[in-house]
Design a protein around this nucleic acid. Structure first.
Length: 416
DNA sequence: TCTGGGGTCCTAGGACCC
DNA sequence: TCTGGGGTCCTAGGACCC
């Protein structure tokens, strides 16, 4: 008995949501992502705009050149999250095993729902209707025995369609498709495969695993499985269901104009650190590794990380450590285009904070909890650390660097 | 083409340990 | 002293996805 998997993918999701708020946009070339003369890329393009060659990830200025008559609008992440939530509620009525793979797509394990909902195609039509009624949005649905094939099928079903790949027909369905259709095969991998004469998934399927493994390592093996329609390798191996804790939390900012102003950089870093720390607290996570990201004017990008002796979720620790990383690593002959903070290596901390620091940190934790509540009530910009406080942080860094996290030597395990 | 922001996963080298 | 092998952690970078 094979599994039945649905992949539900919203059609032009961001654009469609914007159209609900402004019906004037309907039927017109629309680009979501920002103004046509700004730094940035296209988040989503309406089907009318796509006719002019505009597609997501294209620089906004390029999109403007392709389609100057397009309407350029800012994105509204809160709106998308809200509609994504409504979609999820509908999906949850059809199966308890739902996994939102991103804001606008989801997998459902529909195995064993036939008695209740009828055969897969009928269930898919009901689901499509349900989503339409709850959100006034269209989606496309792929049905197959694996997530991989369901996802490829939903792409082919675009737009506003349903495609069912029958059990046992997976390899035949995939064979004529370009290798690029496999999720995870991008520009680089495609070029690699082309260079050894592999253009279609069928070409991949008749290759022996040995050749693929020796050439592409772990990925090669996964590719061999994928070419036959199996959920093999990495993300696809996990079960459909609830998502666990995030593996990393980060924020970054690209300046409208490159800068080498230390005050500007530090202020931005502070703001980013506050956002990251807040999200750590929301997830009840503490981070061990803090990474600074810099992109210079020539687009070269460096990352510099440091692991802390004690994991943290406090603004002040992120601010101090990221500033230190900035000053240690910024090549001052270059101006900066982007700055970012990335945290990873999470732990749930249940016990007490380290003794030396606990009094001060506990006060901070309480203050930040209060600030988080105010932000919930009055919006993200309602509360920020005062500049006076920031000054104190800086003094403390200079006075007593040894007391800060990350400075202690790594704990050694006892020898044998 | 003048290139966002949020993620996941993989590779590879070096430190360090047994 | 001319030099193993396996494992884990850390760091840096890159491919890829939406």
């Amino acid at each position: 008995m094979s599994r039945t998997v649905f992949h539900v993918d919203m059609d032009a999701f961001f654009v469609s949501v914007e159209e609900l708020y402004d019906p004037n946009l309907r039927g017109k070339p629309v680009v979501v992502g920002g103004k046509s003369n700004e730094r940035g890329v296209v988040s989503a393009a309406s089907y009318e705009a796509r006719k002019f060659g505009v597609h997501s990830a294209m620089p906004l200025r390029t999109a403007y050149q392709h389609c100057p008559q397009a309407i350029f609008v800012e994105g509204h992440p809160e709106r998308y999250r809200e509609y994504s939530g409504r979609v999820f509620e509908v999906l949850n009525r059809f199966s308890p095993l739902v996994q939102m793979a991103s804001i606008d797509e989801a997998y459902l394990d529909m195995t064993g729902t036939e008695r209740l909902l009828g055969p897969p195609l009928r269930a898919a039509h009901l689901l499509h209707e349900g989503v339409k009624q709850a959100t006034d949005l269209n989606c496309s649905i792929g049905i197959a025995t694996s997530r991989l094939v369901a996802k490829i099928a939903s792409d082919q079903a675009k737009r506003n369609g349903i495609l069912h790949v029958l059990p046992g027909r997976e390899a035949r369905y995939l064979a004529p498709l370009e290798v690029r259709k496999i999720p995870g095969v991008g520009k680089v991998m495609e070029k690699n495969l082309h260079s050894i004469g592999i253009r279609r998934i069928g070409d991949l399927a008749i290759l022996d695993e040995k050749t693929l493994t020796s050439r592409f390592g772990k990925w090669g093996l996964a590719l061999a499985g994928k070419s036959h329609g199996l959920d093999a390798g990495g993300w696809f191996d996990s079960e459909i269901g609830e998502r666990g804790d995030p593996k990393s939390i980060s924020h970054e900012h690209t300046f409208h104009e490159d800068t080498r102003d230390p005050e500007r950089l530090e202020a931005t870093l502070t703001h980013l650190a506050e956002k990251v720390a807040r999200r750590l607290r929301e997830h009840n996570l503490h981070t061990r590794t803090i990474q600074l990201k810099l992109r210079y004017s020539d687009f070269t990008t460096i990352t510099r990380a440091r692991s802390l002796a004690a994991p943290t979720q406090l603004d002040i620790h992120l601010i101090e450590e990221s500033r230190r990383l900035l000053h240690e690593n910024w090549d001052r002959s270059q101006t900066i285009r982007l700055i970012g903070i990335h945290t990873s290596g999470f732990e749930h901390v249940t016990g007490q904070l380290d003794l030396l620091d606990s009094g001060r940190s506990e006060k901070w934790r309480q203050a930040l909890e209060a600030a988080d509540k105010l932000r919930d009530k009055y919006g993200e910009s309602a509360v920020a650390l005062g500049s006076g406080l920031r000054g104190k942080f800086r003094e403390r860094v200079q006075e007593n660097p040894a007391a800060l996290p990350g400075k202690e030597p790594r704990k050694q395990s006892p020898g044998d």
